[in-house]
Every structure is written in C-alpha cells, then in structure tokens.
C-alpha cells in the first residue's frame, strides 16, 4: 500500500511539472526541451526564498509561480516566438542550447552541490494507518496536484480563454480573423506552462533533489509523460503520470536491477503503437 501511495505522490509531482510541457508541446506545438530549466529555476527561487530570506514555504510557492511565469513571458517575447513556425528539429536544438546555458548559470551561482530544503514542521513527518504510512508532504503533493489538474481541465474545456487557446492552436489565421489576439493567447499559455513548471520544480526539491544537472536528468521523464499521455491533454498527462509514478516507485522498490528500464520500454512501445499517446486527441498536427 505504501508503495502505491508513494507512487501516486511521485506521479502527481511528475504531473505538476510535465503538464506545463504538455501545454506548450501539445497546445502550442512547440518542443520545449528546456522545460526542465524552468522547473529548476522555480526550485532555486524557492530555495533562495526559504533559506536566505526565511520566507515560509507556503508563502514562497505563489512567489515562485509568479517568478517562473514572468521568466516564461520574457523568454517567449524575446526568443521563443521567433521559432513557432520552425521545424521541430530547430526547436529541439534551440531549447537544448537554453538547457546548456541554464545549467552553467546555475553552476555559476549555486555550485554543483544538492540544495537543501527545510520543510515546515506542518508538512513534514508522517502518520500511520494500519498497513499504510502516509507522509504528510506526499499527501500535500497529491492534494495540490489533483486541484491543479481539475483547475486546468476546467480552464481549457470551459472558459473563454480555453476556447480561444484551442481556436488559436487549431487555426491561427482563422482565429485572428475572428478577432482573437493570438499572440497574447500564446504568451499567456507559455507563461502558464512555465509557471506550472516552476511550481512543480519548487515542490519537487524535496523528492527529486535540486542541482544544476536537473534539466537533463529529468527531461526524459517529462517527455515520457507527454508521450504516453498524449500531448495537450490534461487528463492524459494525469493518467500517464500516475502510471509512470507508480511503475517507477514499484519498480525501484521490488526489482531494483531493472531500474528505469521499464519506463523507457513503456514509452517506446506506446510511441510505436499509439503515436498520439494513450489518450491522444487524434492525429498530430
């Protein structure tokens, strides 16, 4: 039971980070491998606020989210928007370039070591039910993850902004003709994606650790979630993250020899048999 619970928690953490990628990749059709850099950015901001300025953890989270969104907007305006029409290969190369730069910047300011993060007493510790050890922080992750999943799904499916976004993605020209400010929609979406990445990064410091190699270490995981879940699909990302979180934790717990092998195999198999992902919304554009 504990394994499954931990799996769910790590799955939802994975979801928090990778749903941002799913948004930019699936909805805006941009392969942003630098997504992990945004998560790392969020993580470092959080660590700075907590350790150097003594801001409480829960108060730091909104700041982190806003800061990452802002960073996203700046980068989108200056760099990313030039590449919306470019081939996927160009986008990949470009974002790998950003990853390299972010790694060395992080090295420069923070050094190569892992960053410690002191959780508030409210969120640390665990309580025990018969047959189940529940870490409070893991429970917190699950709650936050689920709330965000519901909010996002609602936003994209129900609100006016969500409708505008879907229209802008499906046919930018027609959307412009209808008076939708496509540029603005894309900036906001990109900001949303980065904000989620930052938030996920901050929440993940406790479980994933934080060092300058973060963007490279975990990018494969984020890509797997998006690939398995189908890009641009909140529900799909959620299910995929849960599957992968549980498989990963259970795999490492029961058969450590195989390690991460299972997950990669799942990804490749999914991509071969269902290139749009398990919950994809039809053919890729």
């Amino acid at each position: 039971m504990t394994v499954i619970f931990d799996g769910i928690a790590s799955g939802l953490l994975l979801f928090l980070i990778s749903v941002g990628l799913s948004v930019t990749l699936g909805l805006m059709n941009f392969v942003n491998l630098a997504h992990g850099s945004f998560a790392m950015f969020g993580g470092y901001i959080c660590v700075i606020l907590l350790n150097r300025h003594g801001v409480p953890f829960l108060a730091a989270l909104p700041v982190v989210t806003l800061a990452s969104a802002l960073a996203g907007v700046v980068l989108e305006r200056t760099l990313y928007r030039r590449l919306y029409g470019a081939s996927h290969l160009d986008q990949v190369l470009f974002s790998i370039g950003l990853v390299f730069m972010s790694i060395s910047v992080a090295h420069y300011f923070f050094g190569a070591q892992q960053q410690p993060l002191q959780l508030p007493p409210m969120l640390s510790g665990q309580f025990n039910l018969p047959g189940l050890d529940i870490g409070v922080y893991r429970l917190f992750l699950i709650v936050v993850g689920l709330l965000i999943a519901i909010a996002l799904q609602w936003m994209i499916a129900r609100t006016r902004f969500g409708a505008q976004l879907r229209a802008a993605v499906d046919n930018p020209r027609a959307a412009r003709g209808l008076g939708i400010d496509v540029d603005r929609v894309f900036v906001l979406t990109f900001a949303l994606g980065s904000a989620l990445a930052g938030l996920g990064g901050a929440l993940g410091v406790e479980m994933l650790g934080l060092d300058p190699e973060f963007p490279v270490k975990y990018i494969v995981y984020f890509l797997i979630v998006v690939a398995v879940g189908g890009s641009g699909n909140i529900k799909g990302s959620l299910y995929a993250s849960l599957i992968i979180g549980i498989c990963d934790v259970a795999g490492k717990y029961y058969v450590p020899q195989i390690g991460a092998f299972v997950i990669y195999a799942v990804m490749v198999a999914t991509l071969i048999f269902r290139p749009q992902g398990l919950f994809g919304r039809g053919a890729a554009k």
Binding site: R82, L93, G97, F100, M101, S102, I103, S104
Partner: peptide, 14 residues
C-alpha cells in the same frame, strides 16, 4: 564553456 556552447547553438538556430 557549456554556457557559450548553449549560446552558440541558440544563435546558430536563430
């Protein structure tokens, strides 16, 4: 080195 490498890549693509 890694920083300039990344910067070069971004510039080449752009």
């Amino acid at each position: 080195w890694q920083f300039w490498l990344g910067a070069a890549l971004v510039l080449v693509v752009l």
